[in-house]
Simulated assay, not measured.
Amino acid sequence: MAQGTLEVVLINAKGLENTDFLNNMDPYVIVCYGSQKRKSSIASGQGSEPEWNETFTFDVNLGDLVSPLRFWTAIVVQRMTVLEKLCNIPLESVMEEGKVPAAPYNVVKDQEFRGQIKVSLSFTHKTHRHGHGMAVQEESYGGWKQSSTY
């Protein structure tokens, strides 16, 4: 089973639906991987075009299935928090490539475009210690692992 660290850089969002008509909304984002959750800072007064430039890390234990990365927007309106599912990002490419450059992902609700969120992703395989005190970086090659002898 491969293990490692997933790093998510939440850069910004564009064109989010403004749900607070009287003021600029104060959005934040909840990023989820499996049961792990991270919360961004509140982008006070930034409305539908917030910028965060925040980094979140998640511990990953890869089995047969890779969970998608899930994003939720949260907006504080008159002391109430309104949550809305933003998007799911599949992680297979970042697990294989190790890094996915910053890219916008479409926000769709009820089959309607609701803006974009821009993130970059990277995955680092965890180094395992094998006998003789040697650290070996685990690598994956097309579904099988290269073995080594000492």
Results as ranks from 00 to 15, higher is better:
W52Y: 10
V100D: 01
V66Q: 15
S122M: 10
V82S: 05
K145N: 12
E112V: 07
D59M: 08
L86W: 01
K14V: 00
V29H: 05
M134K: 14
N12S: 12
E49Q: 03
E7T: 15
W72G: 03
V136F: 07
L10I: 07
E49P: 00
Q46M: 09
L69D: 07
E17R: 01
D20Y: 01
N106W: 02
K145Y: 11
M80Y: 02
V9N: 14
S35Y: 09
T73P: 00
S148Q: 15
H130A: 13
Q116L: 05
Y33C: 12
T55W: 03
Y105G: 02
T124N: 13
S93C: 03
V119K: 01
S35F: 12
H130C: 13
Q111D: 07
P27W: 09
V8G: 10
P104K: 03
L121K: 08
K109R: 11
A2H: 10
G131T: 08
N53M: 10
S44E: 15
A74G: 13
P27K: 06
V94W: 02
S147F: 07
C87F: 04
F58Q: 04
N61Y: 13
T73K: 07
S48Q: 03
E138H: 11
L69R: 09
F21L: 03
E49I: 00
I11D: 10
I117S: 03
F123Q: 11
G45S: 09
Q111R: 04
I89N: 01
A135P: 06
S147P: 12
Q78M: 02
S44G: 14
V107I: 13
R129V: 02
K39T: 11
I11V: 12
T149M: 10
V82R: 04
G98E: 04
R129D: 00
Y28D: 15
V29Q: 06
G142P: 04
C32H: 08
A135G: 07
H132T: 08
I89E: 01
G131R: 15
Y28E: 14
F58L: 10
Q46C: 03
K37L: 06
L62S: 15
G15K: 00
A2S: 13
M80S: 05
K39R: 10
E17G: 02
N18K: 05
C87Y: 03
M1Y: 10
S147Q: 14
T73L: 05
F123V: 13
S148F: 11
L69E: 06
V100E: 10
Y105H: 12
K85A: 04
K118Y: 01
K99R: 07
L86S: 04
S67C: 15
K99I: 02
T73W: 06
A102P: 08
G142E: 09
